[in-house]
C-alpha cells in the first residue's frame, strides 16, 4: 500500500513533497457541489483555483480542511517521502463573518490559535514577541493591538496570512476575498504569497478571481466547475476554449489583444 501511494505521488515529484486529492466529492442535502475532484499539487508551487460563481472553489478548500463532509481522500507526502494523512494546513478564509464591533485584537486572535493560556487572563511578553515576529513577516507588526473589526480588508488578509504561516504549514490554502481589497493591496498580497512559496517551499492553493494576477504569479491553474474542467500552466488553461466559454469572452478577447500589443498593454488592462 505504502509503495503504491508513493508511486502515485512520487511519479512526478520524485522525492519532493506533494499533496494529492483523490476522488473528492461533496454533497450537501441533495445538491452535488463537487464531484470526483482529482488534483495533484507540488510544493514550492502556487496553484490558482479558478471557476465561475458557485463552482465550489471555497467548498473544496473547506472540504480539504475537514470542515465540510466529503468523500474521497486527501494525501500529503512530505520531503522525506513520509506519508501523512493529517497535514498541517494553514488557511486564510475568504471573509470573516465575525461581528465587526467585537473587541478581539489581532494579538488575541494569534494567542487564541497558538497558545494555551486563556486569552482573557492576559498575555506573556514572550507570546507578544512571537506574534509581533510573525506579523513582521507580512509587514504588519503595527497591527498587533488593533481590533480585527477595525482592520481594512487588505490589513485583515495580511494578518490572517501571517496567522496561517504560524506555525509553518505543510499546505497553505488561501481564499481570496471577492471585495474589500484594492488593487494595490491585492498585488502586495500576491507578491508576498509568491515569495512565501520559495522561502518556505510551500504548497499553496489560492482561490482567485483576478486573472491578470493569476497569469502573472501562478505556476499552475486549475479550473473547476463542479469538477475539474482543465488544469495546467496559466497559458494552457487560459488558452483553452472551455475556459473562455465558462467565463464569457471579454477578458479573453482583451488578453488576446494585449498579447499582440506586447507586455506593456497587459499591465494597463
Amino acid at each position: 500500500m505504502e509503495t503504491e501511494q508513493e508511486n502515485i505521488c512520487g511519479g512526478s515529484c520524485s522525492g519532493l513533497c506533494c499533496t494529492k486529492i483523490e476522488n473528492l466529492s461533496v454533497t450537501i442535502g441533495s445538491t452535488k457541489i463537487l464531484e470526483n475532484i482529482n488534483i495533484h499539487i507540488h510544493c514550492g508551487e502556487l496553484t490558482a483555483l479558478i471557476g465561475p460563481n458557485g463552482a465550489g472553489k471555497s467548498t473544496l478548500l473547506k472540504a480539504m480542511l475537514g470542515d465540510i463532509k466529503h468523500t474521497g481522500k486527501l494525501q500529503f507526502l512530505d520531503e522525506k517521502g513520509k506519508h501523512n494523512d493529517n497535514p498541517l494546513i494553514g488557511y486564510v478564509p475568504q471573509n470573516l463573518n465575525f461581528d465587526r464591533g467585537t473587541p478581539t485584537s489581532v494579538f488575541d486572535l494569534f494567542a487564541a490559535c497558538n497558545t494555551r493560556m486563556p486569552v482573557w487572563l492576559g498575555s506573556t511578553k514572550k507570546s507578544r514577541n512571537k506574534v509581533r515576529e510573525s506579523l513582521a513577516s507580512v509587514k504588519a507588526e503595527h497591527l498587533i493591538d488593533k481590533r480585527i473589526g477595525a482592520l481594512s480588508g487588505g490589513e485583515l488578509q495580511r494578518a490572517l496570512l501571517a496567522l496561517a504561516l504560524d506555525p509553518v504549514p505543510d499546505l497553505l490554502l488561501l481564499d481570496e476575498p471577492v471585495s474589500g481589497i484594492d488593487q494595490n493591496g491585492l498585488e502586495l498580497f500576491y507578491d508576498t504569497v509568491s515569495h512565501l512559496r520559495r522561502d518556505y517551499d510551500l504548497s499553496i492553493i489560492l482561490v482567485s478571481h483576478d486573472f491578470d494576477l493569476v497569469e502573472k504569479y501562478a505556476d499552475r491553474v486549475i479550473l473547476i466547475n463542479g469538477t475539474v474542467i482543465s488544469s495546467g500552466t496559466p497559458a494552457e488553461v487560459f488558452g483553452n476554449k472551455e475556459t473562455s466559454k465558462i467565463f464569457g469572452m471579454s477578458w479573453f478577447n482583451n488578453r488576446a489583444v494585449c498579447e499582440k500589443d506586447g507586455g506593456g498593454a497587459a499591465d494597463n488592462a
Binding site: K62, D67, G90, P93, N97, A111, C113, P118, V119, L163
Partner: peptide, 25 residues
C-alpha cells in the same frame, strides 16, 4: 472557561479557520 475559551474565540471568529487549527468546532 480556562480550558475552552481560546477554542471558542477561534470558532466565533471563523469556523473554518478554527478547523484548520485542529479545533473540533
Amino acid at each position: 472557561w480556562l480550558f475552552i475559551f481560546n477554542k471558542l474565540l477561534m470558532v466565533s471568529t471563523n469556523k473554518s479557520l478554527a478547523s484548520s487549527r485542529g479545533v473540533k468546532t
